[in-house]
């Protein structure tokens, strides 16, 4: 049990790290939001599962936290994305690729 819990904690931390790397590496706001939201949501969930395995008595509260994360994380991201979209920022385009067919 202890090992499985640790594994979940590790996976959660790994996804949060990936989210952070994504934030740094992505070229524009929309892609950063994409990387940030998905990775951190799953990372947090994995973390909560890990904690639930370590502390079985806490699981109802952890489930509530998970529910709120699942509900509010995407809303926050979409709201930021919408504000940026309304401010007139367009989707990022790769400009340094020499061959590109059917560019719409």
């Amino acid at each position: 049990m202890r090992i499985i819990a640790d594994l979940f904690l590790l996976v959660g931390a790994a996804f949060c790290l990936l989210g952070a790397i994504g934030l740094l590496r992505m070229p524009d706001v929309y892609n950063r939001i994409q990387a940030g939201t998905k990775a951190v949501t799953l990372g947090a969930l994995a973390f909560l599962i890990g904690v639930a395995l370590l502390m079985p008595g806490w699981w109802p509260k952890l489930a509530v936290i998970a529910g709120f994360i699942l509900l509010t994380n995407p809303i926050g991201s979409s709201t930021i994305a919408r504000a940026i979209h309304l401010a007139g920022v367009d989707a990022w385009r790769k400009t340094d690729t020499p061959t590109r067919e059917g560019d719409a």
């Binding site: 994504g22 992505m26 990387a35």
Partner: peptide, 24 residues
């Protein structure tokens, strides 16, 4: 879907060439 999304995003983030073709 969430799990797939993360594996997909991990692959994109970690690929040196950043395979992205965003559009609305």
């Amino acid at each position: 879907a969430l799990l797939k999304a993360n594996l997909d995003m991990a692959r994109r983030v970690l690929t040196p060439s950043l395979p992205l073709n965003p559009a609305f």
